[in-house]
């Protein structure tokens, strides 16, 4: 591994100052489960690594504030997967967090890190999209809050400015009941990078929100407000076109080692259908 300087700011302000000073030569270190791999393989060669885990303002922790679930930036997957509120109100996120890597990985990997890496295959991204999660980012100009959907550009690239730091991920607590589920496809049953990862949420008003990843340069959110998809009793002839429309934005890469485009597109539909059925059943309290 090439060498770099290590900074351990105690406050967000300090962290921002370091990021501002070094610009793209600085990388934020949260869990390190992606960063350290890339430091070793040389695909990232920062001059300074900024460890945010000792910043008290950044948690770790999950709390409720102003009708939102606030997940601090250094909160790890294991905590999220085990959190009672997440499991109850954000089932698909709990399910996604529970399949990110192994126990060892989930004890280090953070939700904020998973989001900031902007991997198209990030397992938590679809669930964050369907729950309408927001990113809270601190920067030189202050704090801004914006939908996770506005963060992703393509693999490894986000709309964050180099001097911005994600301080939390916030999820609005749903006003009414939601049925939701996460589903993924991997090459083996043991932990693996997803060749398709998706989440579905259905609400009592019949709105279906589906998001999927690993089938294009960035995760995609699609919303169906027709009510037809959420209706388990709707005839196939009605649901089929609506269902098909959900996947129009999928464009899997033919270069992937994990699965071919044709298979990914087919699995998107299989898993989408299964997750939708699970979500509907959960909404019905089954």
């Amino acid at each position: 591994m090439h060498t770099f300087a290590y900074a351990r700011p105690a406050t967000v302000a300090e962290a921002l100052a370091i990021l501002a000073e070094h610009g793209p030569d600085a990388r934020v270190l949260a869990g390190g489960t992606d960063l350290v791999i890339r430091l070793r393989d040389g695909s990232l060669r920062p001059r300074v690594v900024v460890d945010i885990k000792r910043i008290a303002e950044l948690g770790p922790g999950i709390r409720v504030a102003d009708g939102r679930l606030v997940i601090a930036a250094t909160t790890v997957m294991a905590e999220i997967a085990a959190d009672e509120r997440v499991r109850r109100d954000f089932t698909a996120l709990a399910e996604a967090a529970a399949v990110v890597g192994s126990v060892q990985i989930r004890n280090r990997a953070t939700l904020a890190g998973n989001v900031c890496n902007a991997s198209p295959a990030a397992d938590t991204a679809p669930s964050l999209l369907v729950y309408g999660a927001e990113v809270v980012a601190a920067g030189p100009a202050g704090v801004r809050r914006f939908p996770v959907d506005d963060l992703f550009v393509r693999s490894g690239v986000t709309t964050l400015a180099p001097a911005e730091l994600v301080t939390a991920i916030e999820l609005p607590i749903p006003a009414g009941r939601l049925g939701a589920a996460h589903a993924r496809r991997t090459r083996r049953r043991g932990h693996d990078l997803a060749s398709v990862t998706l989440a579905v949420a259905v609400d009592a008003a019949g709105v279906t929100r589906l998001a999927y990843g690993s089938v294009g340069p960035r995760p995609v959110l699609v919303v169906d407000e027709s009510g037809v998809l959420a209706d388990a009793a709707a005839p196939d002839a009605a649901t089929a076109p609506a269902f098909e429309r959900l996947f129009a934005a999928a464009s899997p890469s033919p270069r992937s080692m994990r699965a071919g485009p044709e298979y990914r597109l087919a699995m998107l539909r299989v898993l989408g259908g299964r997750a939708l059925r699970t979500a509907i059943a959960r909404l019905a309290g089954e």
């Binding site: 791999i37 090459r187 083996r188 049953r189 043991g190 932990h191 693996d192 990078l193 080692m257 994990r258």
Partner: peptide, 14 residues
């Protein structure tokens, strides 16, 4: 697929 990320071998779940 050099290395452990994209060369898959069976785990305890397989």
């Amino acid at each position: 697929n050099l290395g452990a990320i994209d060369y898959r071998i069976p785990t305890s779940m397989d």
